[in-house]
Amino acid sequence: MLDRLYQKVILEHNKAPNNFGSMADATHSARGTDALCGDDIQMWLRVTERTIEKAQFSGEACAVTKACASMLTEWLEGRGVDEILPAFEAFQALMDDADRPPVEALGQLNHLRSVGAFPARRANAYLPWKTVLEAMQIPSGLT
């Protein structure tokens, strides 16, 4: 189970995250913190006509949060703003049921379904999503 959480792909994103660093010409940005465990990230988006051209993140966080932020920024590129919330809902559903088949639309984010077996760590996988939604001012329904 531990090996599934800390599988190679997650560890690689943790060690060498994609799209890491702040963005000078971001149109939308938000900070996401989980004081309890010490995650503190900033999600950066450049949006033109409801399409995300570029997404980046910066900050300090655990492997789960970092891997998720790294994968999510890749996933976001070229997507429509309205795709984010449905994708997050599908992502949460995956967490609740690891036996569910992968959701094609989520791409490599499917790897993070193993977090579902670690209830104490789910908040880490949700943080980048919630922060992006906050940056776009889309209510996520999660607190």
Binding site: L2, Y6, L36, G38, C62, A63, R121
Partner: peptide
């Protein structure tokens, strides 16, 4: 270095070791 407290906590837990991670309710000290 290279190991966030949270990840340490999750991994050692799987070896039966219960330790605490976080700010320990002393955020100014952190």
């Amino acid at each position: 270095e290279g190991a966030h407290a949270n990840d340490i906590g999750t991994i050692v837990d799987h070896f039966g070791v219960a330790l605490r991670t976080g700010h320990h309710c002393a955020m100014p000290a952190m």
